[in-house]
Design a binder for these strands. Structure first.
Length: 538
DNA sequence: GCGATCAGCT
DNA sequence: CACAGCTGATCGC
């Protein structure tokens, strides 16, 4: 009754399927094949029943009653297919993976699923054997490495395993399809879609910010099209990934020509990266584009698209909504048709204190600790970029410099943030305030780290600032936070979030009143979707 | 041998 | 179970 497989977004891991729904959504991303799909006023596909075509899906009846749930499936997230989780609430859907559904990948589960898995594996071994004879999936290298079909048929289970596994590897290496929610309807633009190789008909690739899960796939071999982002993100991409690619050769040729003929090849910039200033309207392929500060990490932007026909789309990238945004000229009294929303903490249980409250707690705690134990090393955990305000706050309050290793210093300097740049120091022995990768904030590591500085420091006070440390029992009463202590090591998990809390998201959505919301982070539980539904309906 | 990608882990 | 990585294995060139 629910035509999920045809309508929802396909899992990113799905190497086999194209987005049939997407192709028909977007005139500029032409449809390749298949029947046309009904579109709504936003050119998003409407739900259709495929019952008469004999398609079967296992979604429970209850869910279709909800328009918002329908919207979710229609707009899609990352899930590839949904099935009832029989072991618990029958209404609860569990995300599954098409690789697993088709037996190309093992389930991690136990019991009955494993049994089914064995059957599927048997089947896939047979399929893989058959597939090998197809010219379309056979290459020279395959011929060398894989046994011929006739041999396979006679082969032992072990060699069938080999055949299947090699086939799986072969298939899994194929380019994955770009999920539709990374494409902007009515344009030839994508957002944070670098891990899919060349996206068909995409003329511009937008990068919301420089975090690995968003720029994934960008490398110096990038050659699929222009990348648009903020100037800070552009510098980070250049610095870290040396995106430049094959055009480098072209530029060298032009340079030689220039030397020989003194032509004006000097104006040629060998790059795919196009920085766009914040708050300035840029016209790209007739679309008005404006980047807006996202209050996430340095260089992070929300992207506002204004199409010639009047439609407006806002992609938040990763963001932490705040009142300031309600004064953005691109958003004030402007209608947004579709909001692509960072729904990382879209659950009422996430009620983070403000950043200011957390910073105040961090400073307070640090001062108290130094009073008790003056020879304490203060460590702030951070991803490659982000959480700068935490160590800047400590630096300001204690009047101490900030130590970061050379690679992080290069990043931080590139922000052109004077207060930060001027606070950096080159030697860890010159300041009690150090920044380290958030993943290294473990007792053992800190122990080793302290060993290096044992001349200066006898204790460690570390802060791990992330929204995931939030606990409802602590809420906004930060002084209730219990540090993880071991000897003279103390680690505080502090709910300093660079994503919106539930209420901030709520306020932002109420302010924007978009026609439609498309979540951009994985939402795998039905309960979550139901909560979102009840909420966003307002 | 090298860069890119991926699973697994935190 | 999410973020935003990191590490080590593997693949293709």
């Amino acid at each position: 009754m629910f035509d999920s497989a045809n309508q929802i977004g396909i899992d990113e891991d799905d190497a086999f399927s194209e987005y049939s729904n997407w192709k028909s959504l977007n005139a500029d991303f032409p449809e390749e094949e298949g029947s046309p799909i009904c579109l709504n006023e936003n050119e998003f596909s409407l739900l259709q029943s495929n019952e008469e075509e004999g398609e079967e899906h296992s979604l429970p009846d209850g869910l279709i009653k909800s328009n918002f749930a329908a919207d979710f499936y229609q707009s899609g997230t990352d899930w590839s297919s949904l099935r009832v989780n029989s072991s618990s609430d029958p209404m609860k859907l569990k995300q599954t993976n098409l690789f697993q559904m088709w037996g190309l990948k093992r389930h991690r589960g136990v019991g009955e699923e494993e049994e089914n898995e064995d059957k599927k594996n048997k089947k896939i071994k047979e399929n893989a054997t058959q597939l090998l004879v197809l010219p379309s999936v056979k290459s020279n290298s395959d011929e060398k490495s894989l046994p011929c079909p006739s041999n396979s048929l006679r082969a032992s289970t072990r060699s069938l395993d080999l055949v299947a596994s090699q086939k799986i590897k072969l298939l899994s290496r194929q380019a994955r399809a770009c999920p539709f929610y990374k494409k902007i309807p009515g344009t030839t633009f994508t957002v944070d879609a670098f891990r899919y190789g060349a996206v068909k008909d995409c003329s511009a690739y937008f990068l919301s910010h420089f975090h690995a899960d968003h720029y994934g796939g960008l490398s110096k071999t990038w050659s699929y099209g222009p990348i648009y982002c903020t100037p800070i993100t552009a510098r980070l991409v250049r610095m870290c990934l040396s995106v430049n690619p094959s055009l480098y050769l072209v530029s060298m040729v032009l340079y030689v020509l220039y030397l020989e003929s003194v032509c004006c090849a000097c104006f040629y910039e060998p790059t795919f990266i196009f920085p766009l200033e914040l708050d300035v309207e840029h016209v790209i392929n007739d679309i008005k584009v404006m980047l807006l500060e996202a209050n996430h990490c340095p260089g992070a932007a929300m992207i506002h698209f204004h199409l010639p026909d009047g439609r407006c789309y806002l992609h938040t990238g990763d963001f932490r909504a705040c009142n300031r945004m309600q004064a953005y000229s691109a958003l004030v009294n402007k209608h947004v048709n579709v909001l692509y929303l960072d729904t990382t903490y879209c659950n009422p249980r996430y009620r983070f204190p403000s950043k200011e409250e957390v910073l105040s707690f961090v400073v307070r705690t640090t001062k108290a600790c130094l009073k008790r134990q003056p020879r304490t090393l203060i460590i702030v955990g951070a991803y490659r970029i982000g959480n700068e305000c935490v160590y800047i706050a400590i630096s300001e309050a204690l009047k101490v410099k900030i130590y970061a290793n050379a690679s992080r210093r290069r990043f931080l300097q590139s922000f052109e943030w004077p207060q930060l740049s001027e606070s950096l120091c080159l030697n860890g022995k010159d300041t009690p305030l150090h920044v380290l990768p958030i993943s290294s904030l473990r007792h053992e590591m800190s122990k080793n780290y302290l060993e290096t500085y044992k001349e200066q420091f006898t204790a460690v006070l570390a802060f791990c600032p992330t929204g995931w440390t939030f606990s409802e029992s602590v809420g906004s009463q930060l002084d209730l936070i219990k540090p993880n202590s071991k000897g003279n090591f103390q680690i505080y998990g502090v709910p300093y979030s660079e994503h919106s809390s539930f209420s901030e998201m709520q306020e932002f959505v109420q302010f924007l009143k978009p026609d439609k919301i498309i979540p951009t982070v994985n939402i795998s539980s039905a309960a979550n979707r139901e909560k979102l539904q009840s909420y966003f309906r307002q």
